[in-house]
Design a protein around this nucleic acid. Structure first.
Length: 198
DNA sequence: GCGGCGATCCACT
DNA sequence: GTGGATCGCCGCC
């Protein structure tokens, strides 16, 4: 359905990843699975800047089957399983051989809300719970899983549109769940817009 | 309201 | 064999 609003892959390959992590706030992420379009506005991101970043899977240039996609040019999906339960969704960034990416941690649900509720809670009674606030919840709501590993972000099933400017509301904080990353645990590489109802 | 913990997979040591 | 870029539930304050 998309059209001119889709962000071209070249966008992800320029600038630096910290700038892009902030710039992605306010843009709109969509999936189309089995004919059902779901999506919303990105309100929380985190930057992972390998090989220096001790929180990155590509620390020290670590290159494995899992991280391989990070070494290609930016604009693709890096989806992987964590804790044996949840899929986390990242956008790869930068040029070839620059293993950088941005974790998408939350969206404000806007399109296909009923479908997202079904995926998260089943067919009943879900009024109190958040839909896509948190990286594991987000992938469940949008039905993103490891099969999307490597998909370009302008594809028929997964894409990002231009969205709106929320830059004045962005707060920078330390990233979540990476206490082990020593000096990198304190870097304010998480960007979030405080919004209710995600 | 908040802290602790179990669930459950797989890439990497 | 280990431990994680998490979540939701349960128990207690």
């Amino acid at each position: 359905m998309p059209s001119t609003q889709i962000i071209p892959l070249s966008y992800y390959q320029q600038n630096d990843t910290l700038t892009l992590a902030k710039d992605l706030i306010g843009r709109r992420l969509f999936t189309c699975i089995n004919g059902k379009i779901t999506g919303g506005t990105i309100v929380e991101t985190e930057a992972y800047i390998g090989p220096l970043d001790k929180a990155s899977h590509a620390i020290d240039g670590r290159r494995t089957k899992r991280t391989e996609i990070l070494f290609k040019s930016g604009g693709r999906a890096y989806a992987y399983l964590i804790y044996g339960l949840y899929t986390l969704f990242n956008v790869t960034t930068g040029k070839k051989d620059k293993p950088e990416c941005i974790l998408i941690r939350a969206i404000k649900p806007e399109t296909g809300i009923e479908t997202m509720k079904e995926r998260r809670f089943g067919n009943y009674n879900s009024t109190k719970k958040v839909i896509s606030d948190g990286p594991g919840r987000l992938t469940q709501a949008l039905a993103i899983d490891k099969s999307m590993y490597g998909l370009p972000l302008n594809s028929e099933v997964l894409w990002i549109e231009e969205g709106i400017d929320l830059s004045s509301q962005i707060v920078a904080t330390p990233r979540v769940g990476i206490d082990y990353a020593e000096e990198f645990a304190d870097k304010k590489w998480r960007f979030v817009v405080p919004v209710p109802g995600t």
